[in-house]
């Protein structure tokens, strides 16, 4: 459930436009909001143009282009947050967060706890999953790393409306948030977005499509092939699709409600299946629904490989592979055995 506070007019926006719009609103609402990142000031306005126009409108003091120093961008954001600001740090490709892990994991995430609650560091780190055409160092889905770190919240939207509403919630949240975007969706996914301020709360999944035979639980870019797979199977298998939207907090209740009806579920994501977010979702569903499920909860994540450059090799789920995963689960349901033992 989302709340629309003061929005009447809507506009067709790409995800990038929704991000720019959210940042513009946040900068206008609160002087403590500042943005840091490489190339983010005009005339470039960020490599994806997500900050286009913002330094011109809100000033170079608050929309600050930095040198190429990921760990110090995050460290500076944490320090500014300790100094009372609400910094948003843009770190281009998510892979570059490796450079900043010390500041994210050892400082942003733990500052509140280590200080006994006195020194919170409410920053937002925006970073995107790239595209395989950049090769294996610009295309990893690393959300699982951050889910594994107490103190952080992890958000991963799939569409322009959620992107704007979740980003505004993240900026004004009092906890540090890792906000993960996806390069492939930045300009290709469009939707109607209210032009005013509204918030999508962190920790509320959204049921994108109702169905009765099986539930696909997914988030981020994999929402789109999941929806396409559900559409392709219409008439044959009735597929419900849940978009988690945020991974920490995790809205397991919405998943439980759905799977208690469908009795079958697959968690679909772009990070590796092994130790991926799907393992957590599957375990929590099994804990709550064991004995009522027709088949064990399945996972369909990326292969345990670096991301291949070749467009012919698919490490992450596609519409076709999701359809195949659904059919495999149905087959297992009918036979009562693991597909590899059939």
């Amino acid at each position: 459930m989302t709340t629309v506070e003061s929005a009447t007019d809507t506009k067709q926006m790409t995800i990038v436009a929704a991000i720019q719009n959210a940042l513009d609103i946040a900068l206008g609402l609160d002087e403590r909001v500042i943005i840091l990142g490489e190339d983010i000031a005009d005339p470039i306005g960020g490599v994806m143009k997500a900050t286009k126009g913002l330094s011109t409108k809100h000033g170079l003091d608050r929309v600050r282009a930095t040198p190429i120093v990921e760990q110090t961008i995050i460290g500076t954001a944490v320090g500014a947050a300790l100094g009372g600001y609400r910094p948003v740090a843009e770190i281009m490709f998510m892979d570059f967060l490796c450079q900043a892990m010390d500041q994210i994991i050892n400082h942003a995430a733990k500052s509140r706890y280590m200080s006994g609650g006195h020194s919170p560091a409410p920053i937002v780190v925006r970073a995107m999953i790239g595209d395989s055409k950049f090769g294996a160092q610009h295309s990893q889905a690393l959300e699982g790393w951050f889910m594994h770190t107490p103190g952080l919240k992890v958000v991963m939207p799939s569409n322009p409306y959620d992107t704007k509403g979740l980003l505004l919630s993240a900026i004004f949240d009092d906890d540090p948030v890792i906000f993960i975007e996806n390069m492939g969706m930045s300009y290709s996914i469009k939707g109607e977005v209210p032009t005013g301020d509204y918030r999508v709360p962190l920790g509320e999944a959204s049921v994108l499509r109702e169905g009765s035979d099986i539930t696909l639980i997914t988030y981020g870019a994999e929402v789109h092939p999941s929806m396409a797979a559900a559409q392709a199977l219409e008439g044959e298998i009735s597929v419900e699709v849940i978009d988690l939207r945020s991974l920490v907090p995790l809205d397991i209740s919405t998943c439980v409600r759905s799977v208690s009806e469908t009795k079958r579920a697959i968690v679909v994501h772009g990070s590796t299946e092994f130790c991926g977010p799907g393992a957590e979702v599957a375990t929590q569903l099994t804990d709550r629904l064991f004995g009522t499920l027709d088949v064990p909860v399945a996972r369909h994540g990326a292969t345990y490989t670096p991301v291949p450059f070749s467009q012919q090799l698919h490490s992450t789920p596609t519409e076709e592979s999701i359809i195949a995963a659904i059919r495999t689960l149905r087959q297992r349901d009918a036979v009562g055995q693991h597909p590899e033992s059939i």
Binding site: I34, D61, R62, Q71, T72, I74, G75, T76, A77, V78, G79, A80, A81, L82, G83, G84, Y85, P87, Q103, H107
Partner: peptide, 13 residues
């Protein structure tokens, strides 16, 4: 880096 951020906050203030 934390001091740089605190310095930025002091400067902006």
């Amino acid at each position: 880096p934390l001091a740089v951020g605190l310095g930025l906050a002091a400067q902006l203030d």
